[in-house]
Design a protein around this nucleic acid. Structure first.
Lengths: 142, 142
DNA sequence: GTTGCAAACGCAAATTATTCGCATTTGCAA
DNA sequence: TTGCAAATGCGAATAATTTGCGTTTGCAAC
C-alpha cells in the first residue's frame, strides 16, 4: 500500500521508479525529522539496504527539483532533507544537541508581499531558521 | 580618522590590532553588500594588500565571535560576512544573478516570543532569507 | 517474454569551502 | 630594546558534495 502510493507519486512527477528511489522516499516519508544525506545512508545500511552515498545525493536532487522534497542548509555544513506535504517548512534547531524540529506555520507571508513592493524583487521562496536551546538541554545544564 | 575608529573598536572588543585585521574590517565597513571570504581576498589582492585566505577566515571568525560581524550561510556553499551596526540582518538574494541585499528590518520578533512559549526553546537567534528575481534580472528576461 | 536503450547506479576520484599544523613574524607590554 | 604570546603564511588536511565512467536496470516496443 505504502509502496504503491510511492510509485504513483513517482509516476505523477515523471520520476522513473527504482528500488533506491523508493527506499529513500519511504525513509523520508516515515521520518518525523529532517535527515541529512548521510543519515539516510546509515539508516538504509542498518536495514541492509546498502546503496551508494552519491546515489542518495542524486536521488535527493531529483526529489528537490520536482518539489517533493525540501532541502535546507541550516548549519554551515550538512544539508537536511524532508518531504513536503503542502507548503514549505521552517525550522528550529537546538545549538546544544543539534536536534532539528520542523515548523509548519509561516509567520511572514504578509511581510513577503510588502517586501516585494519595497525591493522590486519577485520573491519565490524564503527560509527561516531559529536557533536556541531546547527544554531538555536547558534542564541538563541546570 | 577611519583607521583610528577602527583601532578603537578593536581595543574596545579586546582584539589585538594588526594590519590584516584593519584591512579586513575596513573593507567590510566600506562594502554595502555582504562579502565572502574569497571576495575579501580578491579585493585586497587588487589593492596590493595580499594576505593569506586562511588568515582572512581566522580574522572573520574573531570578528564574528566578538559580535562585530555577522556570518550568514545563505546558499549551500559560500558564507557571507558583513559588519553589524545594531541588530542582526536578514537577506534577499536574486537566484538569477546571485546579488545579495541585506535587510535591516526584522518582521518576526513577536512571533519568536510566541514560538518560545510554544516549543519551550530558549531562542537565541534566527536567520531569514528570501529568494527571488531582482528587478534588473526580470527586465533582462523579458 | 525478449530485446534495446536511455536513464540510473556504484565506485572512486575530483571539487570546493573551510580548517588546521607548524614554522615564522609581529604587536605590545615590561 | 627585548621577550613572548598571539597572529600570520603556507601548504596540507578535512568534509560535504559532485562528477566521470563503466556497469546495471527499468520500461517500452516488439
Amino acid at each position: 500500500m505504502e509502496s504503491k502510493s510511492c510509485k504513483e507519486i513517482f509516476k505523477k512527477n515523471d520520476i522513473k521508479a527504482t528500488k533506491q528511489r523508493e527506499l529513500v522516499f519511504q525513509l523520508l516519508t516515515d521520518s518525523d525529522v529532517p535527515l541529512t544525506a548521510e543519515e539516510i545512508y546509515v539508516k538504509l545500511m542498518e536495514k541492509e539496504k546498502n546503496m551508494s552515498l552519491s546515489t542518495i545525493y542524486r536521488i535527493l536532487d531529483v526529489f528537490v527539483s520536482k518539489g517533493l522534497v525540501q532541502k535546507s542548509n541550516i548549519t554551515n555544513n550538512k544539508a537536511v532533507y524532508e518531504v513536503l506535504g503542502m507548503g514549505h517548512k521552517h525550522h528550529i534547531i537546538c545549538i546544544s544537541c543539534g536536534k532539528i524540529i520542523a515548523l509548519d506555520h509561516c509567520p511572514i507571508q504578509e511581510y513577503e508581499k510588502a517586501l516585494e513592493r519595497e525591493t522590486e524583487f519577485n520573491i519565490t521562496s524564503h527560509k527561516l531558521v531559529f536557533f536556541g536551546y531546547c527544554s531538555e538541554c536547558r534542564k541538563k545544564s541546570e
